[in-house]
Amino acid sequence: MLKYVIRRLLLVIPTLFFVALITFVLAQAAPGSPFDKNETKPLPVATIERLNRFYGLDRPVYEQFVVFLGNAVRLDFGVSLQRDRSVNDIIGQGLPRTAQLGVMALFVALAVAIPLGVVSALKQNSAIDYASVFLSTIGTTIPSFVLAIVFIYFFGVLLKLLPFVGWGDGLDRRMIMPTVILALGPMAFLTRITLASMLEAIRQDYVRTARSKGLGEQVVIVTHVLKNALIPVATVLGPAAAALVTGSFIIETIFSVPGVGREYIRSILARDYPIIMGTTMLYAAVIVIANLTVDLVYGMLDPRIKVA
C-alpha cells in the first residue's frame, strides 16, 4: 500500500513538470513584452530594459525556465509584473476564499446528488426521478455563466432575495448564489452517475441473493446496493474537482469573489505571467492531488482492486 502511494506520488512530479513546461513555453511564445501594454504612452526603452533585467527576462529562455522551476520547487512564483506584490501573497490572499467556495460547492453537490440519484433509481418514473433528470440535464448542458446570469436576474434583480456581489468572512448570504451555481455542474454530473450506477447495481445477481436471504429492503439497498453503487461515484470525484476548479474562476469573476480564480482571469487579461504561472501550477496540483486521492480511496472501497 505504502509502496503504491509513493509510486503514485512520484508520478505526480513529471506531470506537474510538463504542466509547468507547457505553460512556460506558451507564456514565452506570447509576443511583445509585458511592459509594452500601454500603447499610447510607451515606457522609455531604458526603463523596459531595466525592468527586463529585474525580472530576469533578458536571460535565455531555458535559463529562465530553470530559474522558474528552481523557485517553483520552493513554492516561490516570483513577483507580479503589474502590482508590487509577490505571487504567493496574491494567491495566499485569495486561496482561503476559493477553497471555501470549492469545498462548500462540493459539499452541496454531493449532499443533493447522492440522495437524489439513489431515490430516483429506487422510484423510477416518479416525480423525483423526473426532477433529477431535469436537474442533471440543466446542470450538465447549460453553461454555468448563463445559469449565473439567470439566477442573478431572478433572485437578485427581480425578486431582490439574494445579494450577488462580493464574498464575506465565515458564512455570509453573499455566498449562497456563487456556491449553488458552482455546485450545479458537478451536482448534475454526480446525480447522473449515482443514478446510473444504482440502476446497474440493483439488477445484479448478488442483490437477488441478498433478497433471497430474507433481508429487509432497506438493508438490501444500504449494505448491498449502495456500497457497490457508490464506488463509481467516488471515481468521478477527480473530474468533479476539476470541474469545480474551472468553474471557480468563472463564478468568482461573475460574482466578484476576491479569490484565486478572479486573480487568474485578471492576470490573464493583464498578461501578468508570474501570476498566470503560479495559479496554473496551483490548479494542476489541486487536480493531480484530487485524482490521486480518488485512486487511493477507490482502492480502499473496492476490495477487488489490489493496491500493492
Binding site: 445484479q204 445477481d205 448478488y206 437477488r208 441473493t209 441478498a210 449494505t223 448491498h224 456500497k227 457497490n228 464506488i231 472501497l301 473496492d302 476490495p303 477487488r304
Partner: peptide, 8 residues
C-alpha cells in the same frame, strides 16, 4: 461469480 456481493 455474480451471486456473491463483491464488496462484502
Amino acid at each position: 461469480m455474480t451471486s456473491l456481493n463483491p464488496v462484502l
